[in-house]
C-alpha cells in the first residue's frame, strides 16, 4: 500500500480524510444499536463549525473561513450552529440505525473513491533500470522478433475483365512473354491490368500483404523462393498475379540496442497496469478471504 500511503501523506489529503478517519474511529468505539451517554454529546465549538463551513462550501481554506467565521454576527453563528447540530444528530442517528449498511449507493461510492485514488496513483511508475530493461528483453525476446520482409512486384490479371481463352490462359501467355523478354522489376506496369492498390511491395511484412490480396495469396507467396524469374500465377480475391519475387529477409530477433525504445515502452506499459493491479492485490491481501465451496481464481 506504499502508494496509497504516500497519497495519504499529502497534507491536503490528510486534512480532508481526517474527518472520515475520526468517524471510523468513532464508529469502532461505539456500539451501533444504542448510543451511550457520551456518544450523545455533540460538542459545538469553533473548530467543529469551521470544519462544517468548509465541507458545506466544498472548499478547504482554513484562513479564509476563519475570517468568515470571525466576521459572523452572533445571530449568524447561532444559525450556523443549529444547522450543524441538526446535521450531526441526523448523521449519527442514521449510522446508529445502521442506515449506511446495505446501501449500494454508499457502498459503490466508497469503492469508487478507492478506484479513483488508484487511478491517480498509477501515473508515475518507477522508471526501470538498465538491468531491468535487459531482463525484460531476455524474457520477452519473441515479442521483439521481426517477421520476414518480402520484396516483390506483380502483373495483375483482373477477374472482372474478359480475357480471350480465360484468365488462366491469359496468365500463361503473359508469363511466357515476361520470361522471354526477361522483364525487370519496373517493367510490370506495361503488362498488367489495372490493379487498384499497390504494385510494388518493398520490404513488407506478410500481414499487410494479406490485408490487400487476401490470406490465400499470402500463403502461396510464403511457399515461393525468391528468384530473378517471374513466377505464378498466384490467385487472390481479385484475380491472378504473376510475381517477380526478388527478396525475402528471414525473420530475426534484433539486438537489445536496436529495440531499446520499444522495450522501454513495453516495460512502462506493463508497470502502469501492474501498479494498479498490485495496489488492489495488496488491498485484498490485508483480508483473510475464505472460500466456501467456491472455486478460487488462482487454484494453481
Amino acid at each position: 500500500m506504499a502508494l496509497i500511503r504516500k497519497l495519504l501523506k499529502e497534507p491536503l489529503t490528510h486534512f480532508v480524510l481526517l474527518g472520515g478517519l475520526l468517524f471510523a474511529v468513532y464508529a469502532a468505539l461505539n456500539p451501533r444499536d444504542t448510543l451511550d451517554a457520551s456518544s450523545r454529546v455533540i460538542t459545538v465549538d469553533r473548530e467543529a463549525l469551521l470544519t462544517f463551513l468548509q465541507y458545506r462550501n466544498s472548499a478547504f481554506e482554513p484562513g479564509y473561513f476563519e475570517a468568515q467565521y470571525d466576521a459572523m454576527s452572533d445571530e449568524q453563528l447561532a444559525e450556523l450552529a443549529e444547522s450543524y447540530v441538526r446535521e450531526e444528530a441526523m448523521a449519527r442517528e442514521a449510522r446508529a440505525l445502521g442506515l449506511d449498511e446495505n446501501d449500494y449507493v454508499i457502498r459503490r461510492r466508497l469503492v469508487q473513491k478507492i478506484e479513483y485514488l488508484v487511478a491517480g496513483a498509477e501515473l508515475e511508475p518507477e522508471p526501470p533500470t538498465e538491468a531491468e530493461l535487459r531482463a525484460y528483453y531476455d524474457e520477452h525476446r519473441d515479442d521483439f522478433t521481426q517477421d520476414a520482409e518480402y520484396t516483390f512486384t506483380h502483373v495483375f490479371i483482373d477477374a472482372e475483365k474478359d480475357h480471350p481463352g480465360g484468365m488462366l490462359a491469359e496468365a500463361q501467355r503473359l508469363l511466357a512473354q515476361l520470361r522471354a523478354r526477361d522483364a525487370g522489376f519496373n517493367d510490370a506496369p506495361g503488362y498488367s491490368d489495372r490493379f487498384p492498390y499497390q504494385r510494388n511491395f518493398v520490404r513488407q511484412y506478410l500481414r499487410p500483404v494479406a490485408q490487400v490480396f487476401g490470406p490465400d495469396f499470402a500463403a502461396q507467396l510464403a511457399t515461393l523462393q525468391p528468384s530473378d524469374n517471374w513466377q505464378g500465377p498466384l490467385s487472390s480475391t481479385f484475380g491472378l498475379h504473376l510475381v517477380l519475387f526478388t527478396d525475402r529477409s528471414e525473420a530475426r530477433t534484433p539486438d537489445f540496442e536496436e529495440v531499446r525504445a520499444q522495450v522501454l515502452a513495453a516495460v512502462e506499459e506493463d508497470r502502469r497496469i501492474a501498479t494498479r493491479e498490485t495496489l488492489l492485490d495488496e488491498l485484498v491481501d490485508q483480508y483473510d478471504v475464505r472460500y466456501v465451496d467456491v472455486p478460487t481464481g488462482d487454484a494453481g
Binding site: L12, T13, F15, V16, L17, S58, A59, F60, E61, Y64, Q112, K113, E115, Y116, L117, A119, G120
Partner: peptide
C-alpha cells in the same frame, strides 16, 4: 492558487 486548492480538496473528497 486558492481555487486550485479548493478543486483539489473537492477532488480528493470525490474523485469523480
Amino acid at each position: 492558487t486558492p481555487w486550485g486548492r479548493r478543486a483539489m480538496a473537492a477532488h480528493v473528497r470525490d474523485p469523480g
